[in-house]
């Protein structure tokens, strides 16, 4: 029970801190950086559901991110559609493209899937780069509007944008929590462990993988769309492979296949990057080997390392105490508590 209390407090503390952060710092630059990391986190969560929980490494997520961003940009700038309608449409367009690609890509496995999606990502990039009449080509799109007002609430200043992005991030996390802690989540994990086994226990792997891919691209698209309206300018570079690598790195350092991983990894790396500004384009000199070392020594990242460390402690503690109550009960109340925290 203590572990769950712990988790509950951590979640509550995180939300409180996130809400209070702008008031605490009063520094617009910090607010800007954290808002940006929140946007990345949403994309990383999308990737995590697919690569972490279902075992399919997509290397096309920068492409989907860019599709979300460009959809929003084109719909608002060129078509003049209302911002919120454009935001919803951007997510739907991205998921739809995800669905189309998934129908073919998910017939492939492992290496083929990774290579296939790498190429899909490149195709998306090339199309954005070359389709000048719509995307503005290499010059990109400028003048993307900030989110339009909802009643009296305006999203013109950094502070309100921060809270808007935080809202979407919390929404994403709640969704992820509920998906992962459900029969659907267990189904995805079963597919990751062994697709053959999953199939022989009656799981339609193709259908489930498709659902995951669509969801995953939905969040990539949402992140992209928010990015576009936050930065207000987009160029084809946001669809390039380097962005996929960034997302992957945030995920891996934090912990692939864990719920807290995307937050930890993104915050840490974005923060570290700020201190490595002098390195600029050379930051990969540090992050490249870091990524490789992490995958060799800590395949489940920081969060995974903490888990296994706790597990060892737990085992020691267990030997001394009696065997706990039914953990089924624990889990039920645990997730109830979590639900309350996240909705409150």
């Amino acid at each position: 029970m203590q572990a769950f209390l712990n988790q509950k407090t951590i979640t509550a503390a995180f939300i409180l801190l996130a809400v209070a952060f702008p008031i605490l710092t009063q520094n617009n630059y910090f607010i800007y950086i954290v808002t940006l990391s929140f946007i990345w986190m949403i994309g990383v969560y999308g990737l995590n559901l697919l690569a972490g929980y279902t075992g399919y490494l997509s290397l096309a997520h920068a492409g989907f991110f860019a599709v979300g961003a460009y959809s929003l940009g084109i719909l608002t700038v060129k078509a003049g559609i209302n911002y919120w309608a454009a935001l919803v449409l951007a997510c739907l367009i991205t998921s739809f493209i995800g669905l189309l690609i998934g129908l073919i890509a998910l017939r492939t496995k492992e290496h083929f899937f990774a290579i296939y999606t790498l190429c899909v990502g490149y195709i998306l990039y090339l199309v954005i780069y070359n389709w000048e009449s719509i995307t503005g080509g290499v010059r990109g799109l400028i003048g993307i509007p900030a989110p339009s007002n909802i009643g009296p609430i305006s999203f013109q200043n950094p502070l309100s944008q921060y809270y808007l992005v935080l809202f979407f991030l919390l929404f994403t996390i709640l969704m992820m929590y509920r998906i992962v802690h459900s029969l659907s989540g267990r189904t995805f994990i079963a597919i990751r462990n062994s697709e053959e086994l999953a199939q022989t226990i009656g799981i339609s792997t193709m259908k489930n993988k498709l659902v995951v891919l669509v969801l995953s691209t939905f969040f990539a698209g949402l992140a992209g769309a928010l990015y576009a309206s936050f930065i207000r300018f987009i160029g084809p570079d946001i669809g390039y492979i380097t962005i996929t690598f960034d997302l992957l790195m945030y995920l891996l350092v934090g912990g692939i296949g864990t719920l807290a991983g995307p937050i930890v990894g993104t915050l840490l790396l974005v923060w570290v990057s700020q201190y490595l500004q002098f390195l600029q384009d050379y930051r990969m000199l540090i992050f490249g080997p870091l990524l490789t070392l992490i995958i060799i020594f800590y395949p489940r990242g920081i969060v995974g390392a903490i888990y296994s460390w706790k597990m060892k402690l737990g085992k020691k503690a267990k030997r001394t105490s009696d065997r706990g109550k039914s953990s089924g009960h624990d889990k039920g109340t645990g997730s109830m508590a979590e639900k309350k925290v996240e909705e409150g």
Binding site: L183, T187, I201, I203
Partner: peptide, 9 residues
């Protein structure tokens, strides 16, 4: 997850 196939949610 073994009983997943008998559920509809």
């Amino acid at each position: 997850v073994g009983h997943r196939l008998r559920t509809k949610s």
